[in-house]
């Protein structure tokens, strides 16, 4: 049962990571790419780590995996916030605001 749950979490997490990777290549400007990387990659990483934690059960590795998930959840969003803010301040504008 826990193997099935773990496998499901891993597959869904990998799907999110794949979508995020495709998005960071295919999307047109910096801010949409930042959006793809910040959101779906954070969720994908969270699901993959959660799947590994379910797979291990009550082992010594589980608290460490949950710590990784928790800190990745906060740090990814904060880092992307800082990068997007720096891009805005250094003159990048979203594609929708620039004249064609």
């Amino acid at each position: 049962m826990s193997t099935a749950v773990a496998a499901g979490l891993l597959v869904v997490g990998t799907a999110f990571l794949t979508v995020s990777a495709i998005g960071s290549i295919r999307l047109p400007d910096f801010f949409t790419r930042a959006h793809a990387v910040a959101k779906s990659e954070t969720l994908g990483l969270f699901l993959v780590v959660l799947g590994l934690a379910v797979h291990h059960g009550l082992a010594a590795a589980t608290p460490r995996l949950l710590f990784i998930a928790f800190f990745a959840l906060i740090a990814n969003a904060t880092a992307m916030h800082a990068v997007a803010r720096a891009a805005m301040r250094s003159g990048h504008r979203p594609l929708s605001e620039t004249p064609p």
């Binding site: 800190f71 740090a75 916030h81 803010r85």
Partner: peptide, 18 residues
């Protein structure tokens, strides 16, 4: 210091864990 309050708070909270 960084001008975003989010980065300031999260940064100083993360340092002990790092």
């Amino acid at each position: 210091h960084h001008d975003s309050v989010v980065v300031r708070v999260i940064g100083s909270l993360f340092v002990p864990f790092v």
